[in-house]
Amino acid sequence: MSAAERKHEFVDSLRRRQIIDGLSLGKRTDGRGLTDYRELKMEIGAIVKANGSAMVHLGNTIVLVGVKVNLGTPFPDTPDEGILTVNADVLPIASPYEEPGPPDEDTIELARVVDRGIRESHMIDMSKLAIQPGKKVYSVFIDVTVLDVDGNLFDAVSYAAVAALMTTRFKKAVVKGDEVIQSDKMMEMPVKTIPVSITTAKIGSHTILDPDGIEEAVMDARLTTTFDSANRLCATQKGGEGWFTPEEILRQMDIARVKAKEIRSVIKEAVKNAKKS
């Protein structure tokens, strides 16, 4: 059953007031402006045993994503499409509020929102992942490991997953008679667009981008929006115990749409450099 669990620093009402006062002056606790992201560092391809991987540092938040490509049987309702699975794990070392065990509702939401950003933007041409329609397809596993939590896991994990997919290489399978076998030829992930997730938080009457841990502890509500390369909105998720006015939502999306372009060029650059080396 879903219930609000405390997963962050206990922040009393005075601290919240102090943060809101700062926001009124355009200042955040770490000195950022309201729409600034923290430094985004990407290390692509560190895990050579995976078909694709990326480690993302977003401020103090650290996440690692590995992609593995297997052969699998397609779902009956999509016989000529590959399979995509996103799984997330927030490690007990990542935060004093995490424990070992099956994923809780926050972790499940994280995996599902990242999955939606990739799936609904049609980032991957799933029809190209079919080998023998109805019988054999590529099955793509995106496994997320969160190593350190300081807010905005949604965006950090999304960037890592997208970068890992863009650099994924796997053995091409070929049909020989009745059998499907892996050849020595490598193939790349058929990427059609680059989805970028942008998360904003509402604290009092202020909207900020890329909330860190303490800001998530005091925020009223959160809005995660994902945009494709054509800048279309592909996925949305509102979270948190608060609400937004319709005007706030439209304004948030205008800000996020601009920011998504900036982040997309950072991801593209990192992927380009990774492919060179």
Partner: peptide
């Protein structure tokens, strides 16, 4: 005038979102 749940999946242009919302 408060929105308490908003989700979406699938591509929408800015105008399409406004209209749908």
């Amino acid at each position: 005038n408060s929105v308490t749940l908003l989700q979406s999946d699938g591509p929408l242009s800015k105008e399409e979102f406004k209209k749908a919302f």
